[in-house]
Nucleic acid binder design. Structure first.
Lengths: 218, 218, 218, 218
DNA sequence: AGATAACCGAGACGGTACGTCGGGTCTTGGG
DNA sequence: CCCAAGACCCGACGTACCGTCTCGGTTATCT
């Protein structure tokens, strides 16, 4: 739900989630492997931000990471593997759906996050989307990432139900997609310049529809 | 709205007598030049269908069209130019929004067309979407194509207003996007297997929301 | 003189109990270490026969022998070391020069052996020759092997002198080279298809020249 | 007969034999192709001399020639192709067998040439021989080269017959091989340090055998 | 019989070279 | 004015071997 970039950027640095379990003594090898992973994933992020997907070659990543080409090929096989690993790492974060006290507030918050992720230039998220069209592995990892985000966002709907804002049988996924899809559509597919007001409007529309009981039943 | 492929796939030799892509000065529109354009665009379509966007190289198109590489480079410059020309040609068709007598019926009809265009394998439409992430020219042409389709679909909303199904001040574009975006989102971005029921549901949801007056006002 | 392959191919597990290659300190000649040596040398022979010298990589040998890469690197250092060890093992056989009762007969017998070793397909001998151009260690081992063979063949000349067939002061080495060199030349360097008749002819020519006293004096 | 290097080295420089036919105006292209060939073949020669066959990679040649890797691959396919082209060019020279007035003198002259070609360090000839074991194309070209040389040397035998030095039915090829093979054998295969006296001796032996009528008959 | 040094399996790594594909430029020559 | 042909430079691909390194686990021989 939130742009992939948000989460993906979180784990940057020395490979917080990729560190070896246990001892810190990254003498030479032993730690080298883990350090290389961090170096490479950082390089992928940086390269993606600076030059977009088309500037993302195994060679450029390897050079940027200060690691040998063949090492990258050995462990990640190709660009898709790099992206998949990046997305997998991004999934291991602690992102949580916003909790503003109202359905509309939560949806607006989510959509603003998405808007930010999609329209910031350069946008890691759009680069990853572009990548997903070229690599099956990246596509799969991106799908998993989004599924994870939608699952976490289900909380928003549950809370709204508990508060009595919307009918009990509201389909969470359908509502969330109704709120976010127009934004993605506008920015990613139609490529129309899109203001944050558009994001807010889509959130409001979805909330009102939910209140009207649109997302219940078949 | 309808998949780009529908229109684009229509006529094989569609562009035979059509105007050349960008330049106004139609110096030599007849004879070999025009024939080559048709041959090349046909080859682009065929190559896209058979091998997807990644199998679309200037070389492969040229060979398939029986034309020399340099000829393609000279007139279309790159793959993006080929796709842009293809989409421009596709926009010159006579597609019209469905007219079933009810808002829901119309939206369902549109969404089924989209569903078909997106899930047929191979899908020209998804290939074009993929292409739009690699080529600014293709992206621009695809955007123009879609804007054209949404404009034609505005009729659906106008008729529904005239019939008194939905409030007078309903925002046509917002409604149409609400109906179609979830479908694109699901298929193109989330890559979740999607049945035609999902398409129908999205159409129904949007129609109900419109009836509830969601798409009026700010 | 005889093709290197003859001796080298003799015993499968030829080196099982033999001394380790270079080092004097036979620290642990028994058990796994010795078994590994036999496995590896067998793999070298087999690989050489099946794929020639160019198919002989440390990796392929290790895999074929069921031994780890690093084990091979540790003990033999590189491909040249493997070949040198193989040739050293081959020199420890009981090959003896033929004894047919006449100089011509002996030379013909030798040349037929050489011919067989060089023209059998696949030919271990030619593979070893090829190898000798790439590895100094292999070249040295091959030279030692051949010197050993020529030394053993000197008997042929001594016997011919005793029988009074050729002058007393005949230079054994010169005669033997005169008999065999054309065969090697033809097959190995000129790469001309060569029949066994050619081998016989070279033997006869050398014998006649010896009888004529060509290989005496300076 | 003469070492391959002798001839091959002759054409060095600006590609004397490889120049385009006709006009000298190697402006840019047109002449570029021919100039590239000369540059590349020169680089092959130089690289072979400096680093031997094992230092001869397509990459190193391309870099040395100041030409792009892919250009070399396109025109010569691999290292074997480079060597074959080099040898083909070498065959187009005007080398002629020596004519000293006596069979022994001619053979000695030839053998000294061979000796020089084989023992000069670095030796282009031995590098080419080594190469011929790795590349079928190089082997074939080298064979053709040598066949050409033996054919030219047949004159030596014919003249000796005319002078009445040797029997009329002497087999030229057999005699020439008998004279030169021991030298190649000693230097190339046995790798024994070899003086020019050895070359002279082999020539004398062959001449004496020829006089004795060894190379007539079956 | 146990200690210990030699050996081995495992696997990542940096590195050279391979041969191929595609992109995009350029020039010649012919219609 | 257009086009066919084809060489070229260039970046990138993914693979094969090479030789090195460190780790942890066996195993043969010595004490």
């Amino acid at each position: 739900m939130s742009g992939a970039g948000a989460g993906a950027g979180a784990g940057a640095g020395a490979g917080a989630g990729a560190a070896p379990p246990g001892r810190e003594r990254a003498r030479r090898p032993g730690g080298r492997t883990a350090r290389n992973r961090a170096l490479v994933l950082d390089a992928v992020r940086a390269q993606l931000l600076e030059h977009g997907y088309d500037g993302l070659s195994v060679d450029s990543v390897a050079e940027r990471a200060g690691v040998h080409r063949t090492t990258v090929y050995r462990r990640w096989r190709d660009v898709g593997g790099l992206l998949a690993d990046l997305l997998d790492a991004a999934r291991d974060d602690d992102w949580a759906a916003p909790d503003t006290g109202s359905l509309t507030g939560d949806l607006v918050a989510v959509n603003r996050e998405v808007h930010e992720a999609l329209t910031s230039t350069p946008s890691l998220t759009t680069a990853l989307i572009a990548a997903s069209f070229r690599s099956a592995r990246a596509a799969s990892a991106l799908r998993d990432f989004w599924e994870d985000r939608y699952r976490r966002c289900a909380l928003i709907v549950e809370r709204a139900v508990l508060r009595g804002e919307i009918p009990e049988r509201t389909d969470a996924r359908r509502l969330l997609v109704a709120a976010t899809a127009p934004l993605y559509h506008q920015v990613v597919l139609l490529r129309v310049p899109t203001s944050v007001q558009f994001a807010d409007q889509a959130a409001h529309d979805a909330a009102r529809a939910a209140v009207a009981g649109v997302f219940t039943g078949p």
